[in-house]
Amino acid sequence: MSDTLLSVQGLTRHFDVSKPWLNRVIERDDRQYLTASDDVSFDIRKGETFALVGESGSGKSTIAKMIVGLLEPSAGEIRFDGKAMDFASGAAMRTLRRRFQMIFQDPFASLNPRWRVGDIIAEPIRTFGLMRGEEIGREVGRLLEVVGLSAADAAKFPHEFSGGQRQRIAIARALSSRPEFIVCDEPTSALDVSVQAQILNLMRDLQDEFGLTYLLISHDLSVVRHMSNRIGVLYLGRLVEVADAKRLFTDPQHPYTRMLLDAVPDLALSGRRRTPVTGEVPNPINPPPGCAFHPRCPHVMPECRQIQPHSIPTATGTAACHLLGQGAPRAQQG
């Protein structure tokens, strides 16, 4: 029996970013596609927190949206608890949908400003028909208390709350369908640090209490380090490294992971030596050929410019870098 809750295989998504038809004809341009997610595969085990980190254009949010059905994959498969997710089939998805939820980045946009907090939290309960009548009100009150607010807050509107309190409401809504799996898309990046700590602690407590599995999307390595068991590093839509959290920070395999770690400001003022970070993420519409990271890589080799590296098993995961597979190509040459 496998303890994998979510399995993503070869997940790919293209966006058509072509100019309008008339412009293309006149300017003799071809259709243009942006590959936001390119053949991404990973598994998330029950009860763990799996994090996807990356900078802008890395495709982390696109992947999150495909997993919860907000975007359709161009190719690839998502399996939840062994069952293939097919968002087109309404009836079959209904039971699956109840089991996963999402927490969004911006607590000011994720709550409908015209709805009372109670109705916001009750929406999943009502949509899935989990309870009726008075029961809903009691459940909403209980959920509000679970996330550290009071049951009386159900009658208020979102604008009466601070950013951190709103994120608590969003979490209560996500919990209301009693899910097993929650996709957290930059859940604290819109919050101040002191509030961020409250939300991160709350998320951990809830994970212990309800046995939740998280997919955490973030650009903040410190947050990821604090929250997750395993981490996937994305660069321009490709998964460049997957590793156990501890291992990733002590022994990064991919040069990009190393660079990201070096870019984190050193709060401890330890004066640790850091390689200066160079360059910026290129335009994802025309990513560099071969390994997309090669123009910024300090260890670039000729094959990096032509051949896209495959994921190679490492101590606790995988990494896609020619440096790691060096043995193989060299042997072929010799």
Partner: peptide
């Protein structure tokens, strides 16, 4: 204490 860091591995962050 509320800021998570790469080096510190406390289970919970100090919260105000």
């Amino acid at each position: 204490g509320a800021i998570p860091t790469l080096t510190q591995t406390a289970d919970r962050l100090t919260q105000i």
